[in-house]
Design a binder for these strands. Structure first.
Lengths: 226, 226
DNA sequence: ATTTACATACCAACCGGTACGTATGTCATC
DNA sequence: GATGACATACGTACCGGTTGGTATGTAAAT
């Protein structure tokens, strides 16, 4: 664990500072609009240091994407790794985490969604990396839904992956609209509707309210503050 | 109608060429990544001409957004203006139009969604313009849902605007994911799930299939090819 | 109808600033 | 002393925007 030499420590710290700076700037203004000078400035380092660690601008874009993916995995781990729970409860937990994520200081946004939008057609390499991380997320949802199918009887048969992509789209689209509208509540509203949609896949009873009022009445436990 | 002088005609044509060029480039690479040189090149004009018609780069961004909004209004008009129909049928028609829009040559994407993502925090002026157009779209959906409430009894009370924003998020998020994944089918899948969600707001019967198979069996009429 | 006077649309060349990337040097660490 | 982490200074290309000029169209005066 502590076998890292002083050089390695320093190097890792600087790289992390650069990545965090890049992520913050990308979230604020997008990838193309952020310059490596800005990244260096925000990280408190100089360009010499930057190009010592990263061959070019795309390299830190790559690193920023991977780091964001890892952060997400950490963020959702509480929901994804609780095999003791009912899978549907895990899905609910996941939605709670997503909702609590919107409560951050800066507007709720996703580096991967941002870069996907911007670079899908101009930077194939970064685009496929984004697609990979988005696919990982979706597969986690699909797995939970498949496990839920073993316990609860679906009202109608459905494809878990398709529903996973549906939820992912809602998530990304909500962050987009919540940002331009400057109304993070939009995200919460949409996630609650998504929760109702998911619940309705397994039960026809009216226990899963469609209106937000019913869903909000029972306070869910706060989980993470990223 | 034909009271336009030769100068006015030429001017309007050039402006349209510039706007179409800008939209195409923005869809492909985003706003920041597109240069006015590229726009001029694609439009077959020079920079002198460009800055004669538009004061600066943001000006054509503004024009591109408005033109895209107008295009959308034209695109959906068949669904939005058919007061004779059941409002829910109008919603279905709207979804059909959205699906047929994904079948275009170039990847299905939205100038307004793209610029919203990129400029939400860096270009407030363009951001509020995007938000305005997105709000227009949502209000059309909300209006249809409100009219539907007068005819059909909702299973549970719901807020039409909230559902409108939900559908808008699905639409934007789907285009985003469909683009990075290079799988436009993702968009169609999501829209079919949205269709099921909307139908389930008004009826508990199983007539509105959640699975895509049932929904796809009955062929819906093709509407527009943009 | 021609001429005159002017406005419009457009072009080619240029300018300041900036972005990415490099070349070289320095100092702590191994 | 060699290497790794970082800083300084610079080079090159390009981007948004300007400038001066031209050619065409328009409108009024003759």
């Amino acid at each position: 664990m502590s076998s890292a030499t002083r050089h390695e420590q320093r190097s890792a710290e600087s790289q992390e500072r650069l990545i965090l700076a890049a992520q913050a700037l990308i979230l604020r203004q997008g990838y193309c609009a952020t310059t490596v000078d800005q990244i260096c400035n925000e990280a408190g380092l100089t360009k010499g240091s930057f190009f010592h660690h990263y061959a070019n601008k795309d390299a830190i874009g790559h690193a920023a994407i991977d780091a964001w993916g890892a952060m997400g995995t950490r963020l959702y781990s509480a929901a994804w790794n609780d095999a003791a729970k009912d899978p549907l409860a895990q899905v609910d937990h996941m939605l709670d985490i997503m909702i609590s994520f919107t409560k951050g200081d800066e507007p709720c946004a996703c580096v991967i969604g941002m870069m996907s939008q911007e670079l899908a057609q101009s930077h194939p390499e970064l685009a496929v990396l984004c697609a990979k991380h988005l696919d990982d997320w979706t597969q986690h949802v699909a797995r939970l839904l498949n496990e839920a199918k073993k316990i609860h009887k679906p009202v109608k048969p459905f494809d878990s992956q398709r529903v996973g992509w549906f939820l992912n789209s809602i998530w990304q689209g909500s962050m987009l609209l919540g940002k331009v509208r400057q109304k993070p509540q939009t995200i919460v509203d949409n996630l609650e509707q998504a929760r109702a949609y998911l619940a309705a896949l397994f039960t026809t009873t009216a226990t899963s309210g469609i209106t937000r009022a019913t869903a909000a009445k029972k306070p869910r436990k706060k989980t993470v503050k990223p």
